[in-house]
Design a protein around this nucleic acid. Structure first.
Length: 567
RNA sequence: CGGGGCGUAGCGUAGCCCGGCUAGCGCGCUUGGUUCGGGACCAAGAGGUCGCGGGUUCAAAUCCCGCCGCCCCGACCA
């Protein structure tokens, strides 16, 4: 492509709305433009990079025997009512004129196809995928294309006869995902994750470490343990039970509201306290006990309760229900609440918690003697430095961006949509499903997050919109122009994807800056000086290395460089 | 949805507190000329409903009210 004829609007100045490097560079290098919040137009250069990523995804999906579909984004609303997902908050965009919705994901459509066409065990297994635009009613799009209202996703779905076969499909996907992200040049890791509103029996996320990530990952550098904080655990010890349970005793704690204030006031460490938190779960009040300063993890709470809506009880309501404010509520003689506790407090005794009376706490609470506990669950958020649950080494905590997510769905959608098959004995059984997603824009944005410098993007040949960028320093010089035109044609004939800066009105400095900003892996710099000595210069974008190449060896040198794996 | 910020030419911005504007600057753009190995120079130009609506005033980019949009933090996030 000749830059003089191309639409590549580069920006010298940093767009004020963009705060993270990938967003800034995607705008500055002319890859895309924002249309409205969370919605982007891909310009030719950005779209070429997207296509590179999609083709890698496609090749690896095809390699595990997945079949490519193209499913509709417009869906009948009724299908979503059937699976109970129509009214998930901030999820689905509706169409005003008809009872149609814009699909945020495609379990429903896949399920509909499977329920009408999968009949026998002989029809299974199947793996179906597509690369398609998704629409989600995000309350707050952010960070450029990292969280959009419209985005491109590779979504695939496995249909199996048994849980064992699902494990096989799941593992195939996991391996395919590793190959995809490796080929894309991403430095990623895999964590155990929560299934959340998708439902199902297990999942893992593919992530990159990033300060701009919205997820938090717990990692062990010793044994490789890795989990999203929504499901991560540690080997932090439980509260030990004292031999003697002392009698209950009310203590006066004037104006004490927090665990830290109690620790100071009573000169006891925080493990002596049971913090009480009040929530509503599907409408009914629930009291959660955590040890001392342990932080409740709402994702864990939600899944412990079996999924469903949880929300904190507001202050006035709390006073009406317990007779006290948030700092003074507790589990003893509390009416109208279901009470659960974190595992760390299992059967603990001699605990201090609120008295349900402002300015008073109760000491010596024995959870098995004094409190009707409905269950103990892992509800706490793991903190940096706690011992690894597998090897006891100190855990690290990182922010992370999610690139892909793989789920063992099981029978949730099979049941809702009646997806069944007849087994060898003629018995009807539910199809066992898995679903697997990759955000294509996130591949691009994450790649740029990990591969840029102060001059611009550093593309690898796998994702680069073009492999070679010819910089004609002064195109008005006939010798320069003649050689560049010759080289441009040679590259095209040799099948090398080439971008050719043939602009007559741009100065050499301007062209250098643009070439570094656009970031193609190899630059060929052609100027009068070199030509006088029958050489051109090849610059490797990533290393900055410059090689003087004799004119007659240019194409062979480019081909040699492009075939090396280090690009 | 809570908190904060912003909206002035294609981009980046000054002016707003304290009304007097005929709205300034840099980049980019057009024309002509010079220059050509790290975002060149000279000259002449084009380009603005100051987000939208209402109000106050002799006078509004500037003050007041309402709305819309965008960004950031939080909540949320298959």
């Amino acid at each position: 492509m000749r830059i003089s004829e191309a639409f590549i609007p580069t920006l010298k100045e940093i767009p004020s709305d963009a705060t993270i490097p990938s967003h800034r560079l995607m705008l500055r290098a002319g890859l895309m433009r924002q249309l409205t919040s969370g919605v982007y137009s891909y310009l030719p250069l950005g779209w070429r990079a997207m296509m590179k990523a999609m083709n890698i995804v496609r090749e690896e999906m095809n390699a595990i025997g997945a079949q490519e579909f193209h499913l509709p984004a417009l869906n009948p609303e009724s299908l979503w009512i059937q699976t109970g997902r129509r009214n998930i908050p901030n999820f689905i965009f509706s169409i005003k004129e008809r009872d149609l919705v814009l699909a945020p994901t495609h379990e429903e459509v896949i399920g509909w196809l499977a329920s009408t066409h999968i009949q026998s065990y002989k029809d299974l297994p199947q793996t179906w995928y597509q690369i398609q635009t998704k629409f989600r009613n995000e309350p707050r799009p952010r960070s450029g294309v990292l969280r959009g209202r419209q985005f491109t996703m590779k979504d695939s779905y496995s249909l199996d006869r048994s849980w064992e076969d699902l494990d096989i499909s799941y593992e195939k996907h996991k391996e395919a995902y590793k190959r995809i992200f490796t080929r894309c040049g991403l430095n990623f890791f895999i964590v155990g994750a929560s299934t959340g509103a998708m439902g199902g029996t297990g999942s893992q996320e593919f992530m990159i470490d990033s300060n701009y990530g919205e997820d938090t990952a717990v990692l062990c550098s010793q044994c490789g343990y890795a989990a999203n904080t929504e499901v991560a655990t540690s080997s932090i010890p439980p509260k030990h039970r004292s031999i003697v349970s002392e009698p209950l005793r009310e203590i006066y704690t004037p104006n004490i509201k927090t665990i830290n204030e109690l620790v100071d006031f009573l000169k006891l460490d925080h493990t002596h306290f049971a913090k009480a938190l009040a929530y509503r779960y599907n409408g009914s009040p629930i009291l959660i006990l955590m040890m001392g300063n342990d932080q409740l993890n709402e994702a864990k709470l939600s899944s412990a309760l079996g999924g469903g809506e949880i929300q904190p009880i507001d202050p006035e309501e709390l006073r009406a229900l317990t007779g006290a404010d948030a700092g003074s509520i507790g589990p003893v003689n509390l009416q109208g609440f279901t009470i659960i506790a974190d595992k760390r407090l299992q059967n603990a005794n001699n605990l201090i918690s609120g008295a349900n009376r402002n300015d008073y706490h109760i000491a010596n609470i024995d959870l098995s003697r004094d409190v009707p506990i409905s269950g103990y669950y892992d509800l706490r958020t793991v903190e940096e430095g706690e011992p690894c649950p597998q090897c006891f080494a100190p855990l690290k905590i990182s922010n992370a961006i999610e690139l892909g997510h793989i789920f063992k769905l099981g029978t949730k959608y099979s049941e809702a949509l009646n997806i069944t098959y007849l087994d060898e004995t003629g018995k009807s059984k539910p199809v066992i499903m898995g679903s697997y997603g990759i955000g294509i824009e996130r591949i691009i944005a994450c790649y740029i997050e990990q591969n840029n410098d102060s001059d611009g993007i550093i593309w690898s040949k796998a994702l680069a919109p073009y492999q070679v960028h010819i910089v004609a320093l002064n195109i008005k010089n006939n010798v320069t122009k003649e050689y560049c035109e010759h080289l441009y044609t040679q590259c095209q004939n040799a099948g090398v994807e080439v971008l050719y800066d043939d602009r007559v009105d741009a100065s050499p400095g301007f062209k250098f800056k643009d070439a570094d900003l656009l970031g193609m892996p190899v630059q060929v710099i052609v100027g009068e000086k070199g030509l006088k000595q029958n050489t051109i210069e090849v610059k490797i974008r990533r290393s900055g290395e410059r090689i003087q190449v004799p004119l007659d060896a240019t194409i062979s040198t480019l081909q040699r460089i492009l075939s090396s794996t280090s690009l």
